[in-house]
Design a binder for these strands. Structure first.
Lengths: 302, 302
DNA sequence: CAATTGGATCAGGAAAACTGACCCATGGTG
DNA sequence: CACCATGGGTCAGTTTTCCTGATCCAATTG
């Protein structure tokens, strides 16, 4: 047998739940006549009375009492999942590494929220591990462009180059007037044991006197930078992420001409290919390219 | 949020199950365009893509993979209950006591089935206990008219009177020529320890010499009657239920004028009032009154 | 005993669903 | 390499379903 008309099932369920057609009609935003008719349709389909009709109100028959809870449960199941999926779909989940998040993305996010109030953006500030997409925990991530072992179905959109240059508090400037070799006499500040920014720069410019792994280590570049502002040493700064300190003069570049990139390339927006043209994803992507990225590029040399 | 259009849910479920719109369309007896449209309606409602559209076929998205099994289960739940209820509704469950069933109802039932092929009649041949209706095990019962403690909402339709008269094999007739008192010299056959047919008759005609509870007991009147045919004794026969034996001369009535009724009254069709006008119940009732009952009445005296 | 309540019914009209013809892109085939 | 078959998208027009709103009806209530 074929499943009876679904609207009739829903009308019956509402009528049974409310123990009356009028209340059911109100719930479903229709008239009593509509409920009356739908219930009759279902009864005809099943070949059983589902309600006893009294002059005042209705009462479930044996068959009706049997059908009702099953329908309630089935509709509840559907409803719950549908609501959850719709709620999740309204969200855009983004993960961004700490320094980039706190120094660049987060301050600009209010702009995005204002431009797209319909999108519930949820930002996670943390380092990204590939399993975030597999577990469908995140719709988008910000990461570095070149990463080994990235799955084939991940789109990568470069945002802006990471440009490195040593930076320190103005008080340290005199001690570095002698040129890059003078760095050997200073404490180097590292963003993490994992990243290789000092070695990259030292190797790029062949400053052999400097021990590129000496100095102090922080969990992220933000903290290393703040330490540098306090005069604790020389940080290998990212020109974009430190632009505020540089603009204010809290940090200065002892060797402004000696900048280089990294093998990891630019910061990049990454996301599963299948979600790449999702409207929310597209909105975030477009906003990022139009606003924050353009601003970032203007902070870079050349 | 409101539940999305149910037809869209059904279309999606079928499409997901078949992994394609064409197969889903065939299942639901519509065109592919209809499925395509319904799926899109659901996607718009949820604000999520449910299928990835490839040039050849479709594939569920994360959201679709999540929604699909829930819908399948919910529809299956509904379907199962609906089918069961419809199947039960097509059945008419009747319970009838053994002797009446085997000697009267069952032989005539083929007639009913032929007249109403759409009704799946299921006969239970057993004694009736009131809980049969409460447990909605039976739609109709055949019982005796007067029974203490019968609930108020049970309809009772008398069928035909139970008329008692002693009956025996022709071979015993000479021994009873002396009149009812001669019964004292014969074995009495009882239909059950519960029924009081011999005492009723003996008391009605004041045959004091006869011990109305002596003799042999059977689980039902049918067996007692068959014993009587074998010459095992004298049974207190029901004229209607023994009409075949009487007509064939296998049994004879030694005192044909001495018949009486019982305090339990007529056989009666009983059923819950709320089911009394159910079409299947009405069909059975009407058939019973028109056919078998009329025939039964003609077998009775007066 | 009139007013109210809760449902049944029906003609007419609104809304949803479907059809059928067309389009498009792709992958296999002669 | 052209061509067909496949599988889906789209849209105007039509069918079907569904709903409305008015009218009945029967029983309860004040």
């Amino acid at each position: 047998m074929r499943l009876p008309p679904l609207n009739a099932l829903r009308a019956f369920e509402a009528a049974a739940r409310h123990e009356g057609f009028i209340a059911a009609a109100e719930e479903l935003f229709v008239t009593r006549g509509a409920i009356s008719r739908q219930v009759k349709i279902l009864e005809d389909h099943l070949g059983v009375q589902l309600f006893h009709r009294h002059t005042r109100g209705v009462a479930l028959t044996t068959a009706g009492r049997r059908l009702y809870p099953v329908l309630t449960q089935a509709f509840a199941m559907m409803m719950q999942e549908v609501e959850q999926i719709a709620a999740d779909a309204a969200e855009l989940r983004v993960i961004c590494p700490p320094t980039l998040s706190i120094r660049w993305l987060l301050p600009r996010l209010e702009q995005f929220r204002a431009a797209h109030p319909e999108i519930k953006l949820r930002l996670t500030t943390d380092f990204y591990s590939n399993k975030g997409f597999e577990a469908s925990e995140y719709d988008l991530g910000i990461s570095l462009q070149n990463r080994p072992g990235r799955p084939e179905d991940i789109e990568v959109l470069p945002l802006f180059e990471m440009i490195l240059a040593p930076a320190c508090a103005p008080s340290l400037l005199p001690g570095l007037a002698g040129g890059p070799e003078a760095l050997a006499q200073h404490r180097l500040l590292h963003e993490s044991p994992r990243r290789r920014d000092w070695p990259t720069w030292v190797q790029h410019f062949g400053v052999e006197q400097v021990d590129a792994v000496s100095g102090e280590v922080f969990p992220n570049l933000d903290m290393a930078t703040r330490a540098a502002v306090m005069g604790a040493g020389v940080v290998m700064a990212d020109l974009v992420l430190c632009q505020d300190e540089l603009a204010r003069g809290d940090l200065v570049l002892p060797f402004p001409e000696m900048t280089c990139g990294t093998p990891e390339g630019a910061y990049a927006l990454i996301g599963e290919r299948q979600k790449w043209h999702d409207p929310k994803v597209a909105a975030f992507r477009d906003w990022l390219m139009e606003g924050p990225c353009r601003a970032a590029l203007s902070a870079l040399p050349d």
